[in-house]
Design a protein around this nucleic acid. Sequence first.
DNA 1: TCCATGTTTCTAGAATGCTAGAATCGTCGT
DNA 2: ACGACGATTCTAGCATTCTAGAAACATGGA
Lengths: 115, 115
Amino acid sequence: METKSALQSLSGLAQDHRLSIFRYLVTRGTVGAVVQEIAESVGFSGSTLSFHLKGLVHAGLASATAEGRFVRYHANFAAMDGLIRYLTEHCCEDDPGRCAIAAKTPRTPKGGTRA
Amino acid sequence: METKSALQSLSGLAQDHRLSIFRYLVTRGTVGAVVQEIAESVGFSGSTLSFHLKGLVHAGLASATAEGRFVRYHANFAAMDGLIRYLTEHCCEDDPGRCAIAAKTPRTPKGGTRA
DNA sequence: TCCATGTTTCTAGAATGCTAGAATCGTCGT
DNA sequence: ACGACGATTCTAGCATTCTAGAAACATGGA
């Protein structure tokens, strides 16, 4: 993951409403949630919700799939993993022996990059 | 980690200059770096640098210790770990069996919360 | 086709965040 | 005590982001 996409992910999550939305999607795992469900969970106006969902998708943190007139959103776990890896990259470069973090994250959910 | 501090961490990192600073501090591990070093690494004006360092400290992502007239900064790995845990919390709540992420991060660097 | 429903886009105003020059504060060496 | 130096704070202007009402768009059912 390059700096740019890490920054997009971080900016995407650095807002309480978007963080709420994302965390809700995380709890929903591979199932995801349609906009109405999300709205019930977080409780703010439709246009605001749409604004933030767009932000999450743009940041690569979520994906949207149409289901008739509903739209289902899923958290993008791969993006989250990438972000985590990015943050811990080069940790304690000077003295890796002292470091318990660096590059040891056996992540990615079973079932691919989506959902 | 509660929502508020996670949000602070995320906001702290969601800015390219602060992210650069933080990542540089991460590479410096327990050694940390004085402001001059950081300035050489990232290359922007003193007041801007100070502004962002303050932001990182306020977000709990870095700590500052005076060394004569120098100030040494360290990345706060504990905060980063906390953030990572927070993000992956409750992952796939509906069907944990399907999830490879949830609560399995053996993190925290050797040597305590500082550094 | 027409209406109801679900979602997104448009818009403006308010709030927040960023940058960098100038001034300030604290520490060290002489 | 004084000057040099490292770092932070102050300030103002600029840019970005957030919110929510209104309008628009798309889909499904009657």
